[in-house]
Nucleic acid binder design. Structure first.
Length: 438
RNA sequence: GCCCGGGUGGUGUAGCCCGGCCUAUCAUGCGGGCCUGUCGAGCCCGCGACUCGGGUUCAAAUCCCGACCCGGGCGCCA
């Protein structure tokens, strides 16, 4: 960008070190703060890797640079070309004495929120001005770690022989019943945003791909209003042939451990920015049966009638004894969707599981029904009409292998790993009951 | 969606119970001034706010009703 400084090497603030002392470097970033001492001005420059102090003694820099630095607004974008100096008095031990201090784009003042965090901002305010919020290293760290988690998940599943696929997010009316769908207009037809790739990934089991995964958005039109629900979320879904619920639980728990290992290995500095320490969970995760779970809650006064979903207060009681990762397995068939495989000898219970971290549900999965007649029967028992599922059911008539799978909430996984108090913290632009912008 | 609590300068807050010395507190910010080693720089001067709509009252930031939004809890969430 600045042709006159061919010898200046572009560096990130965090890269400036001993080898640069006496040399010319070029830095791009934002003005984090300005400390104006009259004849001496300190500008703290921030880029995505950290901070560095730009020091402007009036007598040692050009009048132009000095004047510009004195009146620059916080959060303006600047280009600095200058000589690196080792300086014990400077934060980080190095400072840059600029030859050039150019404002590439001035920021308006006052700012809608304080990036330097001298004054805190509420989550709502932060989300309204998310791009500014993301300039805080502590906030940016969340998304650098999220990136790492997603990358870890991809590489792990690829190594396990899963093939990444993309299924449609615009679907026709009949899906699985249950949750509310967002209606959209699709030319002359009625359509909805998909709540889950479930039906499609099962159909793909009949394709011979054998093991597939998808990382993509899911949409739920529920009017929930909690710190762990969103109306648009990212789901990590797998489906695998010739295996059962035990087989995919094994994949899931090893995946979680791998994510912890990778984040620890690759995101040490971001964990530090956030002041978080990660302990890699131990394998295998404990398996708690549905019946044990409701007993545990019942002993502390939270009675769950057999067959019903486990309430939030009950899960919180269980979480007191099981604060880490664990599975709740063998759910009542009637509490799970129609495609979950019932046990042969005890069909009121099915081969299903939820992955929990404390009271937070992270994933749920099951061995699926691959037998056509049984699937039809379960569909009807659940009050749904087979004719609405023809594209799905057809796949079960021409050689559908036994299979199993799960769906893992990516945002919830991030929340669990980093101990975020609100799922919105880990989503760039969350969509909830009231928030549609930005 | 239900229950409880809340909405005050750009941001975060005090004040609200017990209406009137509120021309509304403090911090940060912003504008101006002084200042050559700050690192939450310091000092001086200034700027800037009662969510919206109704009601009660001589008088409303303060009390009442409604809407919208926020926080906590719950429900719903195959």
């Amino acid at each position: 960008m600045s042709a006159g400084n061919a010898e200046a090497v572009r560096k990130y603030t965090a890269e400036v070190g001993e080898e640069d002392v006496g040399k010319l470097v070029k830095l791009y970033g934002w003005v984090h703060e300005v400390r104006d001492h009259g004849g001496l001005v300190f500008v703290v420059l921030r880029d995505r890797e950290g901070f560095i102090q730009i020091t402007l003694p009036k007598k040692k820099v050009s009048p132009d640079a000095f004047k510009t630095a004195k009146k620059v607004h916080r959060e303006s974008v600047v280009e600095v070309v200058g000589v690196v100096k080792a300086e014990p008095k400077a934060p980080g031990g190095y400072e840059v004495i600029p030859e050039k201090f150019i404002v590439l784009n001035e920021a308006e003042a006052p700012l809608p929120l304080d990036v330097a965090e001298k004054v805190p901002a509420e989550l709502d305010t932060r989300l309204d001005h998310r791009f500014l919020d993301l300039r805080k290293p502590r906030v940016q760290a969340i998304f650098r770690i999220r990136h790492c988690i997603l990358q870890s998940v991809r590489s792990f599943l690829c190594e396990e022989g899963f093939i990444e696929v993309n299924t449609p997010k615009i679907v026709s009316t009949a899906t699985e019943g249950g949750t509310e769908l967002f209606p959209i207009s699709y030319f002359e037809k009625e359509a909805f945003l998909n709540q889950s790739p479930q039906l499609y990934k099962q159909v793909l089991m009949a394709s011979g791909l054998e093991r597939v995964f998808e990382i993509g958005p899911i949409f739920r039109a529920e009017e929930h209003n909690t710190v762990r629900h969103l109306n648009e979320a990212v789901s990590i879904d797998i489906e695998a042939s010739f295996t059962d619920h035990e087989g995919v639980m094994d994949v899931l728990e090893r995946l979680v451990v791998k994510v912890y290992e990778d984040v620890n290995e690759k995101c040490g500095r971001y964990l530090e920015w956030m002041n978080v320490k990660l302990e890699v969970p131990e394998l295998p995760f404990e398996r708690l049966s549905y019946e044990e779970a409701i007993d545990m809650a019942g002993r502390k006064g939270e009675e769950i009638p057999w067959g019903e979903d486990i309430s939030t207060p009950a899960l919180k009681i269980i979480a007191e004894e099981m604060p880490e990762f664990y599975f709740i397995v063998d759910w009542p068939t009637k509490s799970k969707p129609f495609y979950a495989m019932p046990y042969e000898e005890r069909p009121e219970v099915c081969k299903s599981f939820d992955l929990m971290k404390g009271y937070l549900e992270l994933a749920s999965g099951a061995q699926r029904i691959h037998v056509y007649d049984l699937l039809i029967r379960r569909l009807e028992e659940c009050g749904m009409s087979p004719k609405d599922f023809e594209f799905y059911l057809e796949a079960f008539r021409y050689g559908m292998p036994p299979h199993a799978g799960w769906g893992l909430g990516a945002d919830r996984l991030l929340m669990a790993v980093l101990g975020l108090k609100n799922i919105r913290e880990g989503v760039l632009f969350p969509r909830d009951r009231n928030r549609l912008v930005p």
